[in-house]
Structures are given as structure tokens and as C-alpha cells.
Design a protein around this nucleic acid. Sequence first.
DNA 1: TGTTAGCACTCGACTCTTTTGAGTGCTAAC
DNA 2: GTTAGCACTCAAAAGAGTCGAGTGCTAACA
Lengths: 345, 345
Amino acid sequence: MDLNERKKQILQAVIDEYIGSAEPVGSRAISKKNELGLSSATIRNEMADLEEMGYLIQPHTSSGRIPSDAGYRFYVNSLMKRYRLGLEAIERLQAELAGRISRLDMAVKRAGFLTSMLTDYTTVISAPKTERTEIRKIDLVPLSGDAIMLVIVTDAVRNRIIGSKLTEDECEKLAAVLNMRLKNKAADEITYDVISQIETEVCGKLGIEPKTMINVLNFIYESVSVMNDSEIYVANAKSILKYPEYRDVDKAREIFSFLEDKRNLKKLFAETDDEGIKAKIGKENEYEILKDSSIVTANYSLDGKAVGKVGVIGPKRMDYAKVFASLDLISHEINKLVGYISGDS
Amino acid sequence: MDLNERKKQILQAVIDEYIGSAEPVGSRAISKKNELGLSSATIRNEMADLEEMGYLIQPHTSSGRIPSDAGYRFYVNSLMKRYRLGLEAIERLQAELAGRISRLDMAVKRAGFLTSMLTDYTTVISAPKTERTEIRKIDLVPLSGDAIMLVIVTDAVRNRIIGSKLTEDECEKLAAVLNMRLKNKAADEITYDVISQIETEVCGKLGIEPKTMINVLNFIYESVSVMNDSEIYVANAKSILKYPEYRDVDKAREIFSFLEDKRNLKKLFAETDDEGIKAKIGKENEYEILKDSSIVTANYSLDGKAVGKVGVIGPKRMDYAKVFASLDLISHEINKLVGYISGDS
DNA sequence: TGTTAGCACTCGACTCTTTTGAGTGCTAAC
DNA sequence: GTTAGCACTCAAAAGAGTCGAGTGCTAACA
């Protein structure tokens, strides 16, 4: 069942051609390129073999061939030539990412955008996931001038200044209650209900102005919300409209809907390998909607541990070589970045 | 040139019908509804008049009529009936907006999303613009345990904790330099260059660890960036694919591109009235790409002063009555919200 | 004078047929 | 093993015919 050298060359030529044109490729077209010095008839025979072996598909009797999922798979595994990104592109990307970005989530967002520009495909990127964080301490510090500072300590420290006339004594009492209720609780245990309960139970008892109470609790809830969901960003979703395989507006809309729901994207990433750059081609994807698309994902890491992923979504005939090269570059650049930006969020 | 009552009724009937069907409306269809008790022939005569007067257009000789821009304009100004939103819809919206949102930008984002759900059209919303803010003071406070707190005071206070071993003395010196350079400067004067200059000039002179310096300056730059651009959010862009007028994928893509560039949206908002709810219909829009679309914008305010806008973008035959009602509701709800959330960002 | 029935006319949309041409598989000769 | 040649296939494009929703106009009616 092995492919001889000539069959490989022909398969590669067909796929390369099809990636560019999105039209079924005929024997004559391959022969014309004259890289192999074979007539169309010979190539026709080989293509018939390749079809029988499952690497090519003929949409109808009298048309050229298009690659099957297996064909693409073989191409990605064995045939694809290494793509060299232009030096200017690399340098521009490095410059863009090296700009003044101190917040990691912004940097990640930017990286996603740049990937989508580099590849011309829709890009999905996840911000680093903070492992099960729990609240270590909550502090309330009165500041001069009718303001207090609320500090929430987890792995990181988040703080906010709130306009309020709480005295030092009141601050202490409130902080004590909050710590009693929330200390050592994991972020995902602190639900909306827990917060609401504190509001109703505590507010009257301590005699604290409701507005202050609400502001404090809001900030706490917001903070745990942020901790819980590792953000996922989608860049350049519109680019799918560029490719003829999504000419059907309804299909495009389905994909947009899919991309909009971050739970889908999380699940998508959860299913992918945690190392290297991997492609999922067509039906290799779990999701019905993506059966005609391919996804290539890469990991980026901090201290050698995978913390986030970047993925490129496009038609099955995507330019895998370019996408692999781009993701390789981007993930390396993010690695550098993550190591560089200080850990605070 | 005035329209008599009957012509008005017919124009209204045509537009109502067309809003629902997106198909040219014939005289028979109007006659059938039997609200006027007129035969198709009579209506035909009236429609011919309405066409002559510029309110209707006949795409080709033997087809029904569709409203012209002027027709829509007349409809919006004089004909449109008040739309009553369902009570459950109103209550659900209020509940959704009243959730635990303490950050204004999040609330605004949410409001945009809700508007798009309510109307089923793409929604653009701008976060409140802080007027020319300037830096009043920069503080650096050493904390226990290898950390310092950087505080930037403008109208609001932004602060961040940075890992660094600066002593109290060094903090004071650095703060002095930063204040000397940046105090009383408006946010938009503090460009990337200004920040870079400080980095190169100050770093060596004070003998401060570069990493700390970079973190401090990054946060400052980030803060002024945030002050400068009032964020604009787009919700439910994909919904434009729902309407037959955007069946042409290339046209849809153009609109997506337009929506992606926030400068366009800012300009769009800048061109609209600062009070009430206003529609721009078809060619009333500056942008070529929006010539076949309509935009309805509303303002929301804080202390009676307009601070932000919400806009709905859809096909010219959008359900203006519903959109006006929705925007009315939403802007009132945001008004409440903005007054309620404390001023910090 | 306003309304309406009636009729000839228009023209996009749909269907059916024909033509075209890119591509195939197979055979026979090199 | 390779290739020229040829009959064959079939989607897509082009053309022809039909249908019907809709019009404008005229003449008759209330």
C-alpha cells in the first residue's frame, strides 16, 4: 500500500495546485507543469491509482481530482515542503509584539491578530490559564479623602479604589466578614449566589452603606469571574468569507455562531494535543460544522509548561506549510513574551 | 407636494409590507389586506403618484414597488407607529443589565450585546468618553515584600502592584522624575515617543533595574492609551448575513472590514446628532459602503451630558419602529446604570 | 369626479434543451 | 512502461420557451 516516489510527487503536485485554485485538478494541468516530464496519460493512470488508494476523490466522472482527507493527511505528514517566511514579515511581527504591552491578555490578543494577518485565516487564541486559584486574603484599607482600597490576593494581587466613607474600624469588620466567607475558597466556588447571599445577610448587620457594599462585592465577583474563564479571542473571523468553500452564506453564519460561543472554542482546544503543532483535517474534527474545515493548533508555554494555545481555522485546502511556519514563529515569539512580562494581570 | 391621507396610508402599507418580505410590493397585495377597501386599480394609480413624487421606486417596469430613501425618511418622520416592546423582554433586559457588573466598560459591552439581541441587528456602542484628562500625579509606594505600588491620578485613580525591590528613597526619586516629565500633561500628549525617551534617559541615570522601569512605563503608557481611546464595541456583526440584501458575500465582507476598524465607527458616531434617537437612511450616510444600509443612533448620558452612543446597523428596510423603541429603552437603562456605577474605571 | 373592471403588455424567474469543453478511461502502438 | 488517439461523460454555460405577478391605460359606472 506504499506510495512510490512518482505517486508521491503527483499527489503533492495535485494538492499544491488545488490549494491554490480550489478547482479540481486534471491530469493535463499536472503534465503541463512539466516537473516530472510525463504525459497526461501516464499521470492519468497514476491518479486513478491514487484515487483507488483513497488519497484523491473525483467529484464526478468527468472532472479532475481533489484531495481526500487522507490525501491531505499524507501531505501534511510526509509531503509538505518547509515554508520560509519572509524576513520582513518576521521582523515586522517581532516589532509589533515587542511594543508597549504590559498586560498579558493584550499581548495575547495582539498575537492572535498578527497570526491571522500572517496566515490570512481566522485565528483563535487562548490566554494563559491560571490553575485553580483561590482567594488567600481580602483587605480593605481606608485611604485619605473618602476612599478605600480593596485588595484581593490570590496568586496575583488585584486591587481597586472605591469612593466610600468607611472608617478604619468598619473596614476591618467588613474585611473580617469577607475573609470568613471567602478565604481559601477556589474562584469557581464563588458563584453569583454566594455573593448575593453575602449582600443580603451582611449589609444590614454591619450597617454599611449599600452602595459601598455593592461596589465591593461587584469587584470581588468580577475578579473571580476573570480568574475563572481563561479568555479566548477570535481574530479575523471575517476572513472565512474569502474562501469559495464558504460562499454559502448560511454555512458561513453557522461558523460565525460557532466561533462566537467560547465554550465551543475551549472544548476545541481541550481536545488538541498539548505539544507541537498539530493539524486536524476535515472529519478528524469532532464538530459537524468543521467537517469541511481544518484546524492547526500550536501551544505556547511558560517555563516549559503548556499554558495557552493558538489555532488557525480555514478550509481543508489551507496552505498548511505556511500555517505551520507561522504558528511555529508565533508560538516562539509568545514564549519569549510570556517570560518577559511580569506575572501580574 | 403634500400627501393626502390615503396616499400616506398606502405608503405606510407598502413600507410595512416590504420591511417584512424584502420583495417588491404590488398593488394587489395592498388591496388584499383590505384595510382601505380599495381595489388594486385605485391603489395602482396612487402608487404611480407616489413613485412620481419620489417615495417609491419600481425596480423594473412590471414589478411591484419598493420604498426609496425619501420614502423611508417620510415613514420614519411621520408614518411609523409606536412599537411596544413586550414586557418580558423589557424585564429580562433590565435584569441582565442589573447583574454584577461593576466595570463600566463591561456594562457597556453587555448593553451593546443586549441591544443586538433585542433588535436582531448589528449593534455598535461606545463607552463613555472621558474628556481631555490630564495626569495630576504619579505615586510610587513601596510595599512590604519586594513590591511597589504605582498610582496614576487623573480624574480617576489607576494603580498597579509591580514586583520590584526599589527602596523608599529610589521610589521617591523615580516618582519625582516621572512627575516632572508627565504631570499636568494631557493624555494625548503622552505619546509612545515621550515614554521611550524617558526610558532611555532616566534608566541609567537613576540606576534602576531596567525590568522595573519597563513595567512602570508600560503601565503608564497603557493607562494613557486607555484614556485616549474611548472604546467602541461591535455586537452581533454576523447578523448582517441574515438579511437577503447582504447575500453577496463580498458586500458582507466589506461591511465586516468596515466594522472592524474602530476609526470608522468613531467617525460614524462623531457625525451623528448628540441628542435623541436619529436615523440615517441609505445615502444619508457618508460612507459608500453603507449606502444600502441604515443606521439608527441614540445617546446615553451622565448628569444630562451626552457621553456615549449606541447605534444599530441594518438593511434600509429595517424595522425602524422596533429599533427606535429598543434604543429608547436601552439608552434609558444605561443612563440609570452609569449614574449608579461609581466613577472609577 | 373618483373608482373600478378589464385587457394588453412587460419582464424577471423558472424550466427545458442544446452546446461546449475540460476531463476521463481505454486501446493500440511505440 | 509510456504515450498518442479517440470515444465518452457530465457540469456549466447559453439559448429558447413558458409562466405569472405586476403594470398602465381605457372605458364604464356610481
